[in-house]
Simulated scan of single mutants.
Amino acid sequence: MPAPDARVPDYAPEGHPPQPRPKVGVLLANLGTPDGTDYWSMRRYLNEFLSDRRVIDYPRWKWQPLLQTVILGKRPFTSGANYRTIWNEELNESPLMTITRAQTDALRKVLAEEWGDQVMVEFAMRYGNPSTPATVQRMVAAGCDRIVFFALYPQYAGPTTATANDKFFRALMDLKRQPASRTVAPYFDRPDYIDALAASVERTLGGRIPQRLVASFHGMPRRYLLEGDPYHCQCQKTARLLAERLGWPEGTIDTTFQSVFGPEEWLRPYTVEHVAELAREGVTDIAVISPAFSADCIETLEEINGEIRHAFEDAGGQQFTYVPCLNDDPEHIAMMARIVAENVGGWL
């Protein structure tokens, strides 16, 4: 079925099929989400995620037998149980899906005020649905002959930004007519991103300064840093700039890493161990923020506000405040719109 604005080009011969009016596409991309919390939905999602060589780069002959038997035999049950504690029952979807859709809707509205229907804004997931290939095909069919691919990761990492870009590029390989494309650069040190983070901290805490603010970033094997991945350095800079922007006393903000998986040494300190150690040292009031996540998800709503909170409280901590991700906060959406505007230069 042709797009609603499809028409036959002026230069086309008789009988030429209608073509949609050319437009610029903006495709937001996030990590992904299972379709449900049942065993098979979780297994499909985890299989796709943990089979990604950007995420787990062990040799396939060594990794796949372990993944397909031991890990995928057990982990879908525990992951499903964790997801059920945060699941959006009303819409029957994960919070990441709900929030990413809200971000997309809000950004679409802002960009429409500037460019009308010249821009099409959609979102896709690296793992699960809506899939990147299906969304790219739909956007091209609607007339997008230029696409800005916007992976929603402030700090670049191979297992996040790079694999999202890989999926987008592979989607282009299946098209007869490829759109021109641009990818968004990491924005870990943008002043408007740092301002949005600081505003979220100040808003959540109501002007109160806790004994410690823990900036908890998603972890990765330390080996990746030694092999050239810039993620660790970008995380450190984000935390430093946030500390400078808040203007709090020196030593108030700590940088840690969460979501450790497997036997390897990961980037340290580990958040769950660090908050417990703070409590044992007599720190009773902390706040935790997750600057690497653009939207609240299982790692923030269940891991930080569950496992990590409990580790702090069990070790003697008294006041634990979780600072939500930027989500669809207007300041965050305005920043995203500015990034898009910079990346469509010469296209609109």
Rank of each mutant, 00 (worst) to 15 (best):
E90W: 08
G15W: 01
P210N: 10
G207T: 10
R60G: 09
L213W: 01
I209Y: 07
T160L: 01
L91D: 13
V8M: 08
Q234P: 07
Q211H: 13
M335E: 01
N343A: 11
R75K: 13
P249L: 04
A292K: 00
S79M: 13
K176N: 15
P65C: 07
P4Y: 09
N47C: 12
T256I: 08
D314Y: 06
T256Q: 05
A171I: 00
R43L: 11
P249F: 07
R190V: 07
V140K: 00
T204F: 09
I86C: 03
V344P: 01
F77Q: 15
E244T: 11
S294E: 04
I253A: 02
S94W: 02
Q103L: 04
R21W: 11
D10F: 13
P269L: 08
L242P: 03
V184C: 02
L246A: 08
A279W: 00
Q103N: 10
E14P: 12
S79W: 03
E331T: 13
T37V: 15
N47L: 07
P59R: 06
V201H: 05
T284D: 15
R84Q: 14
P263I: 04
K167I: 04
E48D: 14
F123T: 02
R84A: 13
Q68G: 14
R53V: 03
P59G: 07
V26M: 01
E250F: 09
Q319W: 10
K109Y: 15
F188D: 03
W63S: 00
I99W: 00
Y270M: 13
V121Q: 02
A112Q: 15
T183S: 09
E90K: 13
A180I: 11
L175Q: 08
G262L: 04
R208Y: 11
M97N: 10
E244K: 10
K237Y: 08
H274Y: 14
A141W: 07
T284S: 14
I304V: 12
C297T: 05
Y83H: 06
W248D: 08
T161I: 05
L107T: 01
P22N: 11
I298N: 03
N165Q: 15
E227K: 15
M173F: 12
N30Y: 01
R245D: 06
L66I: 15
D296G: 05
V8F: 06
L267R: 01
